[in-house]
Nucleic acid binder design. Structure first.
Lengths: 159, 159
DNA sequence: GGTATTTTACTCGGATAGTCTATGTCCGAGTGAGTCTGG
DNA sequence: CCAGACTCACTCGGACATAGACTATCCGAGTAAAATACC
């Protein structure tokens, strides 16, 4: 049970976009080169983010992506769900219904096993819901040298 | 990102084993029929549980599995980790090291993105760690008719 | 100079392909409780 | 009646098959900014 790389890429891309000036956009190509990942495949992830209205892309030259809402209104969960979908990590197959001792007897409530797993799932989601791109930006500023941040910013808006 | 069916099966099997009398064992075949899942494949999951020393199997006729420790010392997390391994759900590929602006500069600390994901992962684990087979047994007794529980017990110890 | 056309640099989205994992099947080897056999 | 051999039901674990998901790659269509051509 492992999250795909696209999730990691998507979050890093959103992080980059959240550091942009007003009116600025970054193209898929630039994002791909900056992160060292295949352009075409990254594009799929960005499309999904766009479909979830987290980012917004424009066509043509000078086109590219930017955030579609304020960075403090975009949580990690939003991004993860945009890429991975909203399925729970545990899928109950109602195994208990196969019990040969049950005849017509109807089962009440949800399966006890599923209940526990769903609760854990919800704890995971809660944690991701609490963190926004602004929080990420703050820890970045704390852990990365101002010099590197500036050089990266210039690299991204070069051409 | 979805947990495999084996996790569900494993927990249900442990639940059954935790309801057993002293000295009793249940065979893979019986467990498979009881849950309506393929015997050979379920066997793989049970082997992993045995390797993690959660259950204990004996060979020969009258052989089968039983819990290897008291039910209140077996958490959902133990079972999940026995089946799925101990990998975190998020795998950091150190994408930030691909930044073309970094030259020799060494990165300090763990990636801010990974940090958040790991925290969510830990919340998930905490929740699973808190629930044991005894807790599961309690909710079962609350939600399932005593009649069905008894019939199931008899079915499991039949020959 | 202003308008129309072309070029160019992007995104969008469908088609395809390889690899990996989850799922499931098959079978031979090992084990040990119960059964059988020979004295 | 008892010891040793045998049988059978079970676990163990490796090999194999299949389906779906993940990770890509390629390309044609659409779009819009910029460059060019034309009047």
């Amino acid at each position: 049970m492992v999250l795909g790389n696209q999730v990691e890429w998507a979050i890093h891309c959103c992080s980059v976009l959240s550091g942009l000036g007003v009116g600025e956009r970054v193209s898929t190509k630039t994002l791909a080169e900056f992160h060292g990942v295949p352009k075409e495949y990254l594009s799929k992830a960005l499309q999904q983010l766009a479909q979830a209205e987290i980012i917004d892309g424009t066509l043509g030259p000078k086109g590219g992506y930017r955030l579609n809402k304020p960075a403090d209104q975009i949580s990690f969960l939003d991004i993860v769900e945009a890429i991975e979908g909203r399925k729970t990590t545990f899928q109950c197959t109602e195994i208990r219904a196969n019990n040969p001792c049950i005849k017509g007897e109807k089962m009440k409530g949800i399966c006890g096993v599923a209940q526990v797993m769903y609760r854990a799932d919800e704890a995971w989601r809660d944690e991701l819901r609490r963190v926004t791109l602004v929080d990420l930006q703050k820890t970045l500023k704390k852990n990365v040298s101002a010099d590197l941040l500036q050089r990266s910013g210039e690299w991204l808006s070069r051409d």
